[in-house]
């Protein structure tokens, strides 16, 4: 075991998988000798050569389109989009192509690829270096959407994503890239997709969250425990599509009071899906309405980003609302 930051764990996951499987390739803008703008691909070109980790022209549509072609023809590409905010030129390739090849060809052509991209706020990136676009992609059958929140999960989920036979969008919370270290197993380490992680036990209420909101929700749960002795369960969803719905329903039933947290805008956000799922399958066990804590339905601000992003106080307020509801 070694202590790694989340971005180091991504790097370790890539290296580990590339050593084991020579069909794994890494491509994207500045991923080569520079090692990517966040250094997630540092050292890959040095170790594996330009054939396996290479810079591409500045063209997200090209990166994903070419990645799809590589995947169609026996390779396992891991494409990097420098910031999730710049993925939209490739939206067509992801939604219309990668996600639909298996279906539209009756399984004759498949796209086992991973698209890694840093997402979310917290680095003063303004409108175009801060967005959480998961909802656009979670509405896409055929795609998988994964969001790690710890170094160990980042490595384990990334390796599972690379081994997955279907295209996976791997959203990395850039706010957590270097925020803490954790012991990460060496060598091949897998965390299965479509499983949730119970971050903290409790059955007075449950908070569903993912990515950079996980530590925020942990802090909120700690404060509530200190302030009023309530035991709040925190569940890291970690795969948003396909979601482990049973685990969500079971946790909602066990606790009866639910808060959903994400930094993306509220309207049609991922929290709406969780709320609807609970309304459909666990309404009889609910003791309070589901409360969402989210970013505002505005573009992402810069100077005032800390007012936009949900923080522990906002989550505490929401928890108090559901806990006090009679």
């Amino acid at each position: 075991m070694t202590e790694l930051t989340l971005v180091q764990a991504v790097n370790d996951g890539l290296k580990t998988k590339m050593r084991e499987d020579e069909t794994v390739l890494v491509l994207g803008e500045d991923v080569g000798p520079k090692g990517g703008v966040f250094l997630a691909t540092e050292g890959l070109t040095a170790e594996f050569g330009e054939e396996r980790c290479f810079d591409t022209p500045l063209s997200e549509d090209g990166i994903i389109g070419v990645g799809i072609g590589l995947a169609l023809n026996g390779m396992k590409p891991v494409c990097e989009i420098q910031f999730q905010d710049f993925i939209f030129p490739a939206f067509d390739q992801i939604v219309s192509e990668a996600a639909k090849f298996r279906y539209r060809s009756g399984g004759m052509y498949t796209v086992p690829m991973v698209i890694r991209t840093p997402y979310g706020g917290g680095i003063r990136g303004g409108l175009y270096h801060s967005q959480s676009g998961e909802a656009y992609f979670c509405h896409t059958p055929g795609l998988k959407v994964v969001v790690p929140s710890t170094p160990a999960d980042a490595k384990g989920l990334l390796i599972s994503a690379i081994e997955d036979p279907d295209p996976v969008l791997f959203l990395e919370p850039k706010a957590l890239y270097r925020s803490f270290r954790q012991e990460v197993p060496e060598g091949i380490w897998r965390v299965p997709l479509s499983t949730v992680r119970e971050v903290r036990p409790g059955d007075d209420a449950v908070v569903f969250c993912y990515g950079a909101m996980v530590p925020v929700c942990e802090r909120a749960a700690e404060r509530i425990a200190e302030a009023r002795g309530a035991a709040v369960r925190v569940v890291d969803l970690r795969t948003l599509l396909p979601l482990d719905e049973e685990a969500v329903i079971a946790a909602a039933r066990a606790c009866g009071r639910v808060v959903v947290v994400h930094e993306a805008p509220r309207f049609c956000g991922y929290g709406a899906e969780i709320s609807a799922l609970i309304a459909e399958h666990a309404i009889d066990a609910m003791e309070a309405p589901v409360v969402r804590v989210t970013g505002f339905d505005t573009p992402f601000p810069n100077t005032l980003e800390h007012y936009y992003l949900p923080d522990a106080r906002r989550v505490v307020d929401a928890l108090e609302r559901v806990l006090d509801y009679e």
Partner: peptide, 10 residues
Amino acid sequence: LPQAVGIALA
């Protein structure tokens, strides 16, 4: 078109 490039590159 870019997919064809990826297929060829493989």
